[in-house]
């Protein structure tokens, strides 16, 4: 589990911004962080990496405490097993791709491991080139390889694909997925791109004004344009979430568990466990699962 409960105040006066977040997230997954600009997404990553110190709270990953203000524990970024991919790549301009990797690697890292990563990111031919002579996509692949060389238990990706064009972004999404499958670090991915989050993430944290408003599966958060025709009848609601004027309900229909988005205003008092009467209409389908 990656658990954290953090508060941090930034700035003063009118520019004051407070971050107050709490979550317990499964390890080994890709977790998206979604929300408007200024919601505190990057600040959360900076706190988790140790680049910023929280005013209050703790960070615990797989029972290892990285910071706890009550116990006066604070591991510096150097002491945390973190990989951080910035939006602007931040490869070291004075080093070639290979030198960037060897600089990041532990001293006893075998050469084969470096080559393996270069291979996985298709940078073997570019290993002796300096970052300035690489394309944006190549730079980001090299930065990703560098972030993974130390086998981080937490990989933080701060809008890593935002500055890239559509084609490169799609191919890099595949890289992220395949590298994650191989190394399995708990990954937090900040992105504004709903499609990207839906494609890459197992869970999505939604943030607003410095707070986590919900942690849900991507399809639950972003909905789906798919629709379903339901037979009129009574359905029991298994779970229910109200989100931005929508009512996300999970119910059983025949042998399938289905998630639907309904207009929240039409069902003001509905709760989990209630039975809902639906009259043969088309609904926005979010997901389906066959029940056992």
């Amino acid at each position: 589990m990656l658990e954290f409960e953090l508060t941090k105040h930034f700035g003063k006066g009118k520019r004051r911004f407070s971050l107050d977040v709490k979550a317990a997230l499964p390890t080994g997954k890709i977790i998206g962080i979604f929300g408007p600009s200024g919601a505190g997404k990057s600040s959360l990553l900076r706190l988790l990496s140790g680049l910023e110190k929280a005013d209050n709270g703790f960070i615990k990953i797989k029972n290892e405490v990285w910071s706890d203000t009550n116990k006066k524990i604070f591991l510096k970024p150097q002491q945390r097993a973190v990989g951080y991919l910035f939006q602007s790549y931040s490869l070291f301009p004075n080093m070639t791709v290979m030198e960037n990797l060897t600089f990041a690697a532990e001293k006893d890292t075998p050469f084969s491991k470096l080559e393996q990563l270069l291979n996985a990111t298709q940078l073997t031919e570019k290993k002796d080139q300096y970052p300035a002579s690489l394309s944006g996509g190549e730079q980001q692949r090299a930065a990703l390889a560098r972030a993974l060389i130390r086998r981080p238990s937490l990989l933080l990706l701060d809008e890593p694909l935002a500055a890239l064009d559509e084609t490169i972004r799609t191919s890099l999404q595949s890289y992220i997925l395949s590298l994650h499958k191989r190394f399995r670090p708990t990954t937090l991915l900040v992105s504004h791109d709903r499609e990207e989050l839906a494609k890459l993430c197992d869970l999505v944290i939604e943030m607003e004004e410095g707070k986590i408003t919900q942690t849900v599966t991507p399809n639950l958060l972003f909905g789906d344009t798919q629709t379903i025709d339901l037979t009129s009848g009574s359905y029991r609601i298994l779970t229910l979430i109200r989100h931005k004027g929508q009512l996300i309900v999970e119910l059983v229909s025949g042998k399938q568990k289905i998630k639907l988005a309904l207009n929240s205003a039409s069902w003001p008092d509905l709760k989990s466990g209630d039975t809902i009467q639906l009259t043969g209409t088309t609904f926005n389908l979010l997901s389906t699962n066959t029940t056992s």
């Binding site: 140790g50 680049l51 150097q78 945390r80 990989g83 951080y84 931040s90 600089f103 990041a104």
Partner: peptide
Amino acid sequence: EASYVLGKS
């Protein structure tokens, strides 16, 4: 910062 998170002093 990239260097710090790579464990460098």
